[in-house]
Every structure is written in structure tokens, then in C-alpha cells.
């Protein structure tokens, strides 16, 4: 019998290696897999590259990982937050590398990796500082009279995502805007680890409602629903 269910967060994360590229789902608090990030902090992997929309809030989750010096580079669209002082301090001190990516390019580069696409041309970012990589302008092309920039896929070793329900084959559903980057990150990583609030029997998720089919998911771990916090889910 195939089961992708992990006993615990620690088991699910046991083989994450130093130097790994790790995608972390979430937009603000919605879909942020805080329990998995805490597990990663505990697990000890370092020299990590993090791919996420934001770069951490206050001193929990991603910010705690940054504060512990585990992260070498962040690839994200919106690091500046009202409470992103951990990232801000590291960035100003030159102790963390930032690759800032327009959010749609981030989503599409991740999707491209998951779909086996070697690169794509987009109008977004053309003529801006973000159409440069390490100071060099990326390849551009005129298509039907408009200018496009060549963007490359972003692959990852591990994706940490937060879903709502999952089964032992790895099928997932999400909850409202907590879906955000989860489905595309699941496609783009060699190992996708999803936290869920409910593990259900095969068939309990209506096949018409499966959002991430199990082929994109390697491990599923159940976590308790978080207590009420400004960036989390209200307790039922």
C-alpha cells in the first residue's frame, strides 16, 4: 500500500540537505507553512536558498530561519513588510543575497520549472532594473512589435507548502487564498512536503475538486490548525 503520509514534521524533513533550494508557499500569513519552517529550523540544514513571495515577518517562521543564519539567498517579490526587520537588517548588512522578481515572473518561472519549460518570453520587467541578472540585461526579443524578456525556470530541491486536506496518495485541496503558490511550487520541486489539517481516505476528496494531484506531492504531514494569529487561521 502506497502511503505518502509522514509520521511527523521531523520525519518529513529528515533528508533536507545543506545548500538546498527550498520553495516556501504563502502570501502573507495565508498558506505559510510555519510548522514546516519551524521543523526545518530544528532539522539544521543551512546555506539554503529560499524561494518565496515574502521574506519573513517578525521573528517567527521564515524570519526565524533567516535570523538563525541558515539562509544564503532569498528569491522573492516582496521582502519589505511592516515587520520584516530581520530580513531588512541582514540585507543592509550585506549578509543575505536577494534576487527580487516581479511576482508574476516568480509564479511563472516556478510553473515553467514544473511544466518542463526551458524559459519563456514576457513583457513584464522589460526596460527595468529587474530585467537584469547580476547587472547584465537578460536576453530580449521583439515579438509582434512588442519587447519581451527571456526568463528562466526556477527549480527547487524541496517545496514546503500548506494545504487543507490531503490523502495518502498526496492529493491536496487548499483553503481560500492560502492556495497561492502551493500548486505551482508542488510541481517545481523534486520533493514536495505538504502540511494539511486533515488527512482523509482515498476518494473522500471529490476528484473534481482535487487542486494538486498526488503526482506532484511526495510527503503529507498532518498538523493541528493554528491558533488565532494575525497571519494565520482562526481556530475553529
Amino acid at each position: 500500500m502506497i502511503s505518502k503520509i509522514s509520521e511527523s514534521v521531523a520525519t518529513a524533513l529528515a533528508d533536507v540537505s545543506h545548500g538546498a533550494t527550498i520553495m516556501v508557499g504563502g502570501f502573507g500569513g495565508a498558506g505559510m507553512p510555519n510548522e514546516l519552517i519551524d521543523g526545518l529550523l530544528e532539522q539544521g540544514a543551512s546555506d539554503l536558498t529560499i524561494v518565496a513571495n515574502n521574506a519573513g515577518n517578525a521573528e517567527f517562521g521564515l524570519a526565524a530561519l533567516l535570523k538563525a543564519g541558515r539562509v544564503r539567498k532569498v528569491i522573492c517579490s516582496f521582502p519589505r513588510q511592516i515587520d520584516s526587520y530581520v530580513f531588512d537588517g541582514l540585507y543592509r548588512a550585506g549578509r543575505i543575497e536577494l534576487e527580487l522578481v516581479p511576482q508574476g515572473n516568480l509564479a511563472e518561472r516556478i510553473r515553467a520549472a514544473g511544466a518542463g519549460i526551458g524559459g519563456f518570453f514576457t513583457k513584464v520587467g522589460f526596460g527595468t532594473e529587474l530585467a537584469k541578472h547580476n547587472g547584465v540585461t537578460k536576453e530580449t526579443r521583439e515579438i509582434n512589435g512588442e519587447m519581451y524578456v527571456l526568463e528562466s525556470p526556477i527549480h527547487a530541491d524541496v517545496a514546503l507548502i500548506k494545504a487543507e486536506r490531503g490523502d495518502r496518495w498526496g492529493n491536496l485541496t487548499y483553503r481560500m487564498t492560502a492556495r497561492n503558490f502551493g500548486p505551482v511550487m508542488a510541481m517545481a520541486a523534486k520533493t514536495t512536503i505538504a502540511s494539511v489539517h486533515e488527512i482523509c481516505e482515498l476518494g473522500d476528496i471529490d476528484p473534481e475538486h482535487v487542486i494538486t494531484p498526488g503526482i506532484f506531492v511526495q510527503r503529507v504531514v498532518k498538523i493541528p490548525r493554528a491558533a488565532t494569529v494575525a497571519s494565520g487561521v482562526k481556530s475553529p
Binding site: 516582496f78 531588512d88 527580487l100 516581479p102 511576482q103 529587474l130
Partner: peptide, 14 residues
């Protein structure tokens, strides 16, 4: 200053 772009470039062009 901490740069942050989010979806601004996507919307501006798209």
C-alpha cells in the same frame, strides 16, 4: 531602502 515589487510590474504592463 528595501526594494519590493510584488505584482506592480505585472499589472503595469498586463
Amino acid at each position: 531602502d528595501i526594494p519590493a515589487v510584488g505584482g506592480a510590474m505585472d499589472l503595469a504592463v498586463g
